[in-house]
């Protein structure tokens, strides 16, 4: 079961973006990271069932959800730090 011979006719495995999905789960407090992990697992299971197109689609979804989650988190972080961080540092600087 686990050690099936590799069939030469199989298309190449699509990237499952697992590391990206976990990074987006850890860095973003949004369920988007979890969605990315779900698609990441789907890439593997669809591929092993022979649904190569579905695996390819899941791969794209895993990448998109992961990148969008990280993008939103980074953007939110920058806006937050720009507002509150600079105010805080300004207060420090003026001897508060």
């Amino acid at each position: 079961m686990e050690n099936q011979p590799i069939n030469q006719d199989q298309p190449t495995k699509p990237n499952n973006y697992l590391a990206l999905a976990i990074i987006s789960t850890i860095l973003c407090c949004l369920p988007a990271g979890i969605v990315s992990i779900v698609y990441s697992t789907k890439v593997n299971s669809e591929y092993f069932q022979g649904n190569y197109e579905a695996a390819e689609r899941a791969s794209k979804n895993a990448k998109t959800w992961g990148l969008v989650a990280i993008g939103i988190a980074v953007l939110g972080w920058i806006v937050y730090v720009a507002f509150f961080g600079l105010a805080f540092l300004g207060a420090l600087g003026s001897g508060y």
């Binding site: 686990e2 495995k13 499952n16 697992l18 976990i22 789960t25 979890i34 992990i37 779900v38 990441s40 697992t41 890439v43 593997n44 299971s45 591929y47 092993f48």
Partner: peptide, 19 residues
Amino acid sequence: WLYMPMVTNTILIVVILFW
């Protein structure tokens, strides 16, 4: 190993259990 369905399924379950 990261491309074996069992491994990624386990990771998904671990993350949700952790949550």
